[in-house]
């Protein structure tokens, strides 16, 4: 299920642009049109806001799409991994450690929790060949346990990293928050790193083999247990980074925040094509831009609905998302 961004060279390669290029063309055309209708200042600002949205969502969605693509688990607990990362960092920072160190430790802790859950829950269920539905129930259960354990210790009131969320970078008539820019750039860099890692490293190739055919991968001597464990660790670490960046740049969070953005993460992952890291990024960009652009024409109250509508429309045209492969009948 892990798919590469560009289609492998094929006889029709030159006659067909890769989906990412198509998407880029569509976005640029739409932007030009918006700039013409609404003026470049408004259109540009909405676009920047959309990209900021996209950065938050895409990074959170990468872990989700890896787990779904490789392990076929609809991980309803993923949003709560974002929360876990952010809260562990908050608590460590509260003890006086510098924020970057707190963040690094929180990433390690979250990855360790993800690995421990694999050992305690997912691996035994894998051995029993549990159905997708039971995995769903277990994921719902883990989501509740994580969210409310965090709340038990931290309380449900809002918390903040206390970073400066007021400072902004001004680019001519446009602006965006400094921390928003940091989150966006870090998100894109990490997603590209994950994409490259999947493609070029030995472990990445093993993961892709797992997603294509778990049984076959096992027969060919791949250490499936190790690769699966590593997938969870990567997903946990990415979730923690996403959660920390989100919390720092948005300003305030409470223990519900991860579960509340979970649906946006799913939307981005599915829109991009499940299992594809770059897909999560492009899915995030499409949703983010659509939502913010919609505010140029509609009341902002419609933003969330616009995101879901775009998802449904995309699936009607591209049933497997932007990067989804044409279904191979088995």
């Amino acid at each position: 299920m892990i798919e590469e961004a560009s289609a492998p060279p094929s006889p029709r390669w030159h006659s067909r642009l890769p989906p990412a290029a198509w998407l880029a063309l569509v976005i640029i055309a739409a932007l030009a049109l918006l700039a013409g209708v609404k003026g470049p200042v408004e259109a540009g600002q909405a676009t920047i806001n959309g990209l900021v949205d996209a950065g938050y969502v895409a990074l959170g969605a990468v872990g989700l799409t890896l787990i779904f693509g490789i392990l076929r688990i609809i991980n309803f607990a993923h949003g709560d991994f974002l929360t876990l990362g952010a809260y562990v960092a908050l608590m460590i920072a509260a003890s006086g450690l510098p924020i970057w160190l707190a963040a690094a430790l929180a990433i390690l802790v979250t990855a360790a929790v993800a690995a421990a859950l694999d050992k305690l829950v997912w691996e035994p269920m894998r051995r029993m060949q549990t159905s997708t539905l039971q995995l769903l129930l277990a994921a719902i259960g883990i989501a509740l346990v994580l969210r409310y354990t965090i709340q038990f210790f931290a309380g449900s009131q809002v918390r903040s990293f206390g970073q400066d969320i007021l400072s902004a970078v001004n680019l001519g008539p446009w602006h965006l928050g400094t921390l928003q820019l940091v989150a966006l750039l870090a998100g894109i860099a990490l997603i590209v790193a994950v994409g490259l890692g999947l493609r070029f490293t030995a472990v990445g190739k093993q993961m892709r083999a797992l997603s294509d055919n778990m049984a076959l991968a096992e027969v060919t001597g791949i250490d499936t247990r190790g690769a699966i464990r590593l997938t969870w660790i990567v997903a946990g670490a990415l979730a923690a980074i996403a959660g920390i960046l989100y919390a720092a740049a948005v300003g305030t969070i409470n223990p519900n925040f991860g579960s509340l953005i979970l649906l946006s993460l799913f939307t981005a992952a599915v829109l991009g094509g499940i299992g594809n890291a770059y897909g999560a990024l492009l899915g995030g960009i499409v949703i983010g831009l659509a939502q913010e652009w919609s505010t140029l024409f509609l009341n902002a109250r419609w933003k969330p609905a616009v995101g879901f509508a775009i998802l449904i429309l995309t699936l009607l045209v591209l049933p497997r998302g932007i990067f989804g492969r044409v279904p191979a009948r088995t």
Binding site: Q45, V52, Y56, L176, Q180, E292, P304
Partner: peptide, 8 residues
């Protein structure tokens, strides 16, 4: 529950 309030 939005991630950004900048457009608003």
């Amino acid at each position: 529950n939005q991630a950004t309030f900048d457009s608003e």
